[in-house]
Nucleic acid binder design. Structure first.
Length: 497
RNA sequence: GGGCCGUUAGCUUAGCUGGUAGAGCAGGGGACUCUUAAUCCCAAGGUCCAGGGUUCGAAUCCCUGACGGCCCA
């Protein structure tokens, strides 16, 4: 029940009594006040004007926001209000106001929403402020805000009642503002490159495009089970077949898996597809995009993350998966990676759970994830993934066991996954068949056989490259945030009762 | 799913080997026309996460559960 059990305390009772008095004086929740400027605009406009210059400034401004602090003296007071742009100090003198406004103001609380009209000036200590001609209460706050100095430190309340976190933490506000800027920038960038933004189904009869367990829901009037999508991939590629040769979608995926610092059941993914291009073109585009994102968000290409420094201005390192595994496991030889029996022993020796169904490719990837992934701090493209773990990727011309595929790692985490698309319908059908076999023998993450998608390929899909970028993890990087819960406004939590 | 840690006033927290809960902020009353963690005086505020157990006595020790955090699978 969290805060709901805290309904009955002195503070709330007193504030409710004040609200009752307000109701008796008229509408306690008026909506006829209009502001004409935001706090930050005042700082921008007058930030470099000194006290004397401001004394000649007679323009009247109307601002509204939440009262975040108040210092009440006998006949004059200071207060700060906060709006969506920032804060500004108010100077409120009894003799400047009409009637009993000052007496009313004295009864208000931190957290109340107020509207104020007045002119700018600078205090003796130099703070740009509004000298109030009139001030009104626009909405009463009945519950006390978190303590002003330490703020809100209870993680649980920060997530469950995010509005309190947003009211009290400038860092949190900034994180989510950056998140929006990142998404806007990506959207503008891809649109500028000629990509068309589309929306594809979130509810799918066959969940495809990734190896993951889906959420299941039910459509009543059709009386059919549907899956929340684990990826939009197969629908976006149908659009490529349809002639939308450059498409992208930024939207939610849902995966029915555990929660961690990097996993939330619903998360945001960018996927984009580019006909007549290959996976190497995607790597180049990704580097350029990330570079421009860093500049957009923080003005240069240097990204500080959890005490480390990444330079998005440098060319990203490229390394094959095999070379990466060998480099981080010096006791292994190239031959070890091709010998299934040896691989099984090596993997088991490193504490990897080896299933009977695992082939050499899957074991190589398991080894990579166990011994290499977390070490890849600087931006690194890992290439040449085994076809065994890449059922939607094109085969390499020279090495048919290898897919023309890459993943991008930064800060030890997978940020992006891209490849040249498999557009041979017969090869795709065979790969689905193998996946469906795996599913039948108990692999819950194996893919379904999507015959409708194969049909689409049979009409002919242009040679295409595609990529997915995890937006939440990217925002974590760009906001120096350790937990995915800090970049999702309302992260998944257990319900309380 | 496993391990470790946490949960005390609205918020931030103290509370040692078991002896009946203390502070700061916020809030209430009073003073104060340039404060900014405003200041000064006074008074108030607690289901110590929940349930069970040990004990003369439990916020404190034990068990179970809830929720959260971190680590691991």
């Amino acid at each position: 029940m969290i805060a709901m059990t805290k309904d009955d305390n002195d503070i709330i009772r007193q504030r409710r009594a004040q609200l009752q008095a307000l109701r008796e004086r008229g509408n306690a929740y008026p909506n006829d006040f209009r502001r004409n400027i935001l706090a930050q605009e005042l700082h921008t406009r007058y930030g470099d004007k000194d006290k004397e210059q401001l004394e000649t400034e007679t323009e009247k401004f109307s601002l509204a926001g939440r009262m975040m602090s108040r210092r009440v003296m006998g006949k004059a007071s200071f207060a700060h209000i906060q709006d969506m742009s920032g804060r500004i100090q108010l100077f409120i003198r009894r003799d400047d106001l009409a009637d009993d406004s000052y007496a009313q103001f004295r009864k208000w609380d931190i957290g109340d929403l107020v509207g104020v009209t007045g002119s700018v000036f600078r205090t003796r200590t130099g703070e740009l402020s509004i000298q109030a001609d009139s001030i009104r209460l626009l909405a009463k706050s009945l519950r006390p805000l978190p303590e002003k100095f330490h703020g809100l430190s209870d993680q649980e309340i920060r997530y469950r009642q995010r509005y309190l976190d947003l009211i009290t933490s400038a860092t949190t506000r900034q994180t989510f503002q950056i998140r929006t800027r990142v998404i806007n920038h990506i959207r503008a960038y891809l649109t500028g490159c000629g990509f068309l933004e589309v929306e594809t189904p979130m509810m799918q009869a066959i969940p495809g495009g990734a190896a993951a367990r889906p959420f299941i829901t039910h459509h009543n009037s059709l009386d059919m089970d549907l899956y929340l999508r684990i990826a939009p991939e197969l629908y976006l590629k149908r659009l490529v077949v349809g002639g939308f040769e450059k498409v992208f979608e930024i939207n939610r995926n849902f995966r029915n898996e555990g929660l961690s610092l990097q996993h939330n059941p619903e998360f945001t993914m960018l996927e984009f597809y580019w006909a007549y291009a290959g996976y190497e073109d995607m790597m180049s585009l990704t580097e350029t995009l990330f570079r421009s994102l860093a500049v957009e968000v923080q003005g240069d290409t240097i990204v500080e993350y959890q005490g480390e420094t990444y330079d998005f201005g440098m060319e990203f390192r490229r390394l094959t998966l095999r070379d990466a595994v060998l480099a981080h496991n010096p006791e292994l030889s190239a031959g070890d990676l091709d010998d299934l029996d040896r691989l099984r022993n090596i993997a088991a020796g490193k504490g990897i759970e080896v299933k009977d169904s695992y082939g050499a490719g899957k074991l190589q990837v398991e080894l990579f994830e166990k011994t290499v992934e977390a070490q890849l701090k600087q931006p690194t493209f890992i290439t040449a993934y085994p076809v065994e773990v890449s059922p939607l990727s094109r085969r390499n011309e020279a090495q048919p066991d290898i897919a023309d595929r890459f993943e991008l790692f930064i800060g030890g985490r997978e940020i992006a996954n891209g490849f040249s698309e498999l557009n041979d319908p017969d090869d795709q059908a065979e790969r689905f068949r193998i996946q469906a076999e795996g599913k039948a023998s108990g692999d819950e993450e194996a893919m379904h056989y999507d015959a409708d998608y194969v049909t689409a390929l049979e009409y002919g899909m242009p040679p295409t490259a595609g990529e997915g970028i995890g937006i939440d993890r990217l925002v974590m990087l760009l906001t120096d945030t350790a937990s995915i819960r800090d970049v999702i406004l309302f992260p998944q939590l257990r319900t309380k009762e």
